[in-house]
Nucleic acid binder design. Structure first.
Length: 217
DNA sequence: TGAATGATGCGCT
DNA sequence: GCGCATCATTCAT
């Protein structure tokens, strides 16, 4: 999808970016850069894959079973990080969207490593550089993001998103991955031309749709 | 190569 | 207790 010039402004994304319909935020996030100023140093990546989870009526959204201590951040103001533990060993990073009281978020699923690659290395992982951040759990492990970072303000200086360049990106949508309800929604967005998107499990067939057709079809 | 499975902890019924 | 918005290892071809 091509972003209109008015939507492109270099620098850190402000709260108003997140305070919009979640699907708009999700598709706009493809091609943006995530920056983390950790204690170990600065890391960044170019976002290539996200999923939208929208409100209490979305059965796949954590908020669908009401507000709890775990998902409280999603019920708050937009522009905050919602991080949770999954399968006992992995963390997932989400960006809270929509006005306070409408619990919605965008899950970051994959990015291309840009800055601080050496900080992301992990002795147990010989993965190729391009695949180092290609999955929600892999991303958080590489960036060393955990529950202690849950609730961080994305307009602060530690963890934030930014726009770096104006480019044309081919974005496609599909069903979301790893869930068993809400499969009628094509709420996963990814960069068709990136080789850093997450791997699909064998045999999974996803309904998908191209938003901006590739040239030379 | 591809497909199956174990690891692991917390929120929720 | 069960089920998860997962991933690396293992075993089988």
């Amino acid at each position: 999808m091509t972003c209109s010039p008015s939507a492109i402004r270099a620098g850190k994304l402000s709260r108003s970016f997140y305070d919009r319909p979640t699907l708009e935020v999700a598709s706009d996030l493809i091609g943006k850069y995530i920056v983390y100023r950790s204690d170990a140093g600065l890391m960044s990546g170019r976002i290539v894959e996200v999923e939208a989870y929208i409100g209490e009526d979305d059965p796949a959204c954590h908020a669908s079973r009401g507000r709890t201590k775990r998902n409280a951040v999603m019920f708050g103001k937009p522009g905050y990080a919602y991080i949770y533990l999954i399968y006992g060993m992995y963390h997932c990073l989400n960006f809270v969207t929509e006005p306070e009281g409408k619990p919605s978020a965008v899950l970051l699923r994959a990015a291309e490593p840009i800055d601080g690659f050496e900080l992301m290395l992990n002795p147990h992982n010989e993965a190729k550089r391009s695949k180092l951040l290609s999955g929600p759990g892999k991303f958080c492990r590489a960036f060393n993001l955990g529950l202690s970072e849950n609730g961080l303000d994305l307009t602060g200086d530690r963890l934030y998103l930014e726009n770096r360049k104006n480019e044309t990106i081919h974005v496609a949508t599909s069903q979301r991955i790893g869930i068993s309800s809400g499969l009628d929604k094509l709420w996963r967005f990814y960069d068709l031309n990136s080789n850093a998107v997450s791997a699909l499990r064998k045999g999974t067939q996803l309904k998908r749709k191209t938003i901006h057709a590739e040239k030379g079809n």
